[in-house]
């Protein structure tokens, strides 16, 4: 299903680091930059998922730390946030019925992570929690905070599990590679059912397990051409769209009769 690099987004680099004055005495603080050459990705008729490549660079890296491989980068592509209802089925008279539910606000519809190393090797679980970083640490805000913590925890776990099962939440360990001391490339997965809207690409820099800096860029994922027109018409001119759907069906039925008639 996955078409590798169906469209790789090429890039803009910020190589300011190279121009940093060599005579500086105190070491400058490290920074991170990512840039997208395009700020929108179009989904066309043949879309069946893709890999999105994001390039970026470290600013003022310490050459010694870099050589020892103690810089880690995590890149996240976060889909637009929306409220989500999680429902649980229970048995009623032998039949499975949706009974309990929990609503969460501002849940990113998709969440693709690329990292230099496995998450547990980069930093402490606590700092992931503080940064709300990684699918399993992402903070999900329940709409009704009055529910018991155990229930909220159960439904939060289910929400994450469902999102990963449908490929919307994914983790690509080793998806970030350093190409040179300060240049890196991140590959994040776009699921076939990636939501359209404004996505946010975020890059986190860690040095020896400590969080240093974050940088972000926006990316618009939209339907293009034919699909986009259909979607827009269906929502903005729904009555005309309905009439069109009916006419198309009648025409197809009539044509089918004319072309394939057997009596």
């Amino acid at each position: 299903m996955r078409a590798p690099n169906a469209f790789a987004t090429a890039i803009f680099l910020s190589l300011l680091a190279a121009a940093a004055p060599a005579k500086a005495q105190t070491p400058l603080t490290e920074g991170i930059q990512i840039g997208l050459s395009t700020d929108n990705v179009a989904i066309t008729a043949g879309f069946s998922g893709a890999d999105l490549t994001i390039f970026g660079s470290l600013e003022n890296p310490d050459p010694l730390v870099a050589r020892q491989g103690r810089y880690d980068v995590i890149v996240v592509l976060e889909g637009p946030p929306k409220p989500v209802v999680v429902r649980r089925k229970d048995r009623v008279l032998g039949v499975w019925v949706n009974l309990d539910s929990e609503t969460f606000e501002n849940v990113p519809m998709s969440y693709s992570v690329a990292t230099t190393r496995p998450l547990q090797d980069i930093t402490e679980p606590n700092s992931y929690k503080q940064l709300s970083l990684g699918a399993s640490n992402l903070y999900m805000q329940p709409a009704d905070a009055g529910d018991s913590p155990a229930t909220i925890e159960e439904f939060t776990a289910a929400l994450r599990e469902r999102k990963s099962a449908t490929g919307l939440y994914s983790e690509n360990v080793g998806g970030v590679q350093f190409l040179s001391q300060n240049l890196f490339r991140a590959t994040v997965r776009l699921a076939p059912n990636v939501p359209v809207g404004t996505h946010k690409a975020r890059a986190f820099l860690f040095k020896s397990g400590l969080f240093i800096k974050e940088s972000s860029a926006q990316l618009e994922i939209r339907k293009s051409g034919f699909e986009q027109s259909i979607f827009r018409v269906a929502h903005n001119y729904s009555f005309l769209y309905g009439i069109f759907a009916i006419s198309l069906a009648m025409l197809t039925g009539w044509l089918g009769r004319v072309i394939f008639r057997k009596d």
Binding site: A234, I243, A245, T252, G253
Partner: peptide, 30 residues
Amino acid sequence: TTLVHATTNQTVDVVLAFLLMAGGVAGAQY
């Protein structure tokens, strides 16, 4: 029904419907 679903729920997918119809009308005559 199609018209009302299209206007109230926006759940009619013409591309999907057309693919099904195209196969359907041919099959129906046979």
